[in-house]
């Protein structure tokens, strides 16, 4: 295990950022810390990197207790969301920074930097200033800079968060390929579940300072531990008191079989290749269930708005218990009105 985190707590004033977090991060893999904003994932990453101190708990990196070590003694590479480029230094000097600090011979620095610039495809920009680069190029430079010191672990804090969607997608693919080449243990923070599912070998889901689940992307998507993980990792709809993925539901217009729920089609929405059908269930209270189908499946059914249908859960689909219903704003207003 490359990083062992045991019983880490961190507060900022009254706000509990991390609540007794323990996690082991495996060597040589790409691990994602996934969760909503303010959930504590960046704080955990900064504690691993030494940029933040845990109130209590231990951090061990490759067998070395790093709990009290300052960042410069941890040998970790850190990449920031907003690049943190050294604005007064050229791309080459940025990448060389860690090696210059370590007083390596000039010739060695030169060849190592050339190698890294080639790795991140920035050879022809070596003499430019960061302000002359695009966002994506700056982030690749920051990555080369972090890799230059041959870190034990590479930590990336929302590395693509400041980039537009297209560049983000490109860099995501590129990071995956880069990791397959370089094999350094990497931890990256993201709030984008698609990014985590696509890039990571392992995902740690963090919410409200606690770890919700740890597992491979398939594990998390197919066997979520609770309703939070279920609804954070993909689309969900509520059927009875269970949360279900809309693509795990099937529609048919014949006689209802045992366990089927009948209803009426309220709306049909087409989003590219996917058809989204809103079904209002019969019975009290009526539920609005979302079912997604491919275009061909839906055509074969020959249904339209207003048609009576039965909903069936596809075999071997995973469901979780739905959380207790949240009071809607209307309910709150009602209770406020009655209390006066």
């Amino acid at each position: 295990m490359s990083i062992e985190i045991t019983n880490v707590n961190k507060r900022f004033g009254d706000f509990v950022a991390l609540d007794d977090v323990s996690v082991s991060i495996p060597t040589g893999q790409l691990t994602a810390l996934l969760g909503p904003s303010g959930g504590g994932k960046s704080t955990l990453l900064r504690i691993i990197g030494g940029l933040e101190q845990a109130d209590t708990g231990r951090v061990v990196i490759e067998g070395v207790d790093a709990t009290g070590l300052p960042p410069q003694k941890r040998n970790v590479g850190f990449v920031f969301q907003h690049y943190a480029a050294f604005k007064h230094l050229s791309v080459r000097r940025n990448v060389a920074f860690g090696l210059e600090i370590r007083k390596r011979p000039k010739a060695e620095i030169r060849s190592r930097v050339d190698e890294l610039l080639a790795l991140v495809h920035l050879e022809q920009f070596a003499e430019r200033l960061p302000s002359q680069l695009s966002g994506g190029q700056r982030q690749r430079m920051a990555l080369a800079r972090a890799l230059a010191i041959e870190p034990t672990v590479l930590l990336l804090d929302e590395p693509f968060g400041a980039l537009d969607a297209k560049v983000r997608r490109e860099l995501r693919d590129w990071l995956r390929r880069l990791h397959d080449e370089v094999h350094v243990s990497t931890v990256f923070v993201t709030h984008d579940q698609e990014e985590a599912l696509e890039v990571a070998d392992e995902i740690v889901v963090i919410n409200e300072g606690r770890i919700e689940q740890i597992g491979s992307p398939d594990d998390l998507y197919d066997r979520p531990a609770n309703d939070f993980v279920m609804s954070f990792l993909g689309p969900v709809t509520q059927l009875g008191d269970r949360l279900v993925r809309p693509h795990d539901l099937q529609l048919h217009s014949g006689d209802p079989a045992a366990g089927d729920i009948s209803g009426q089609i309220a709306r049909i929405n087409r989003i590219g290749f996917e058809i989204r059908v809103d079904v209002a269930t019969t019975g009290e209270p009526s539920q609005a269930v979302v079912v997604t189908l491919t275009r061909n499946e839906f055509r074969a059914l020959g249904l339209d708005v207003g048609a009576a249908v039965n909903i069936r859960l596809a075999p071997e689909s995973h469901t979780t218990l739905a959380p207790p219903a949240q009071p809607t704003p209307a309910d709150t207003a009602k209770s406020l009105a009655s209390s006066h």
């Binding site: 300052p70 920031f80 943190a84 010191i149």
Partner: peptide, 13 residues
């Protein structure tokens, strides 16, 4: 202070 943090993580005191 991000540039300073980056420098610290790269080994600068």
């Amino acid at each position: 202070d991000e540039q300073e943090q980056a420098a610290r993580s790269l080994g600068a005191n």
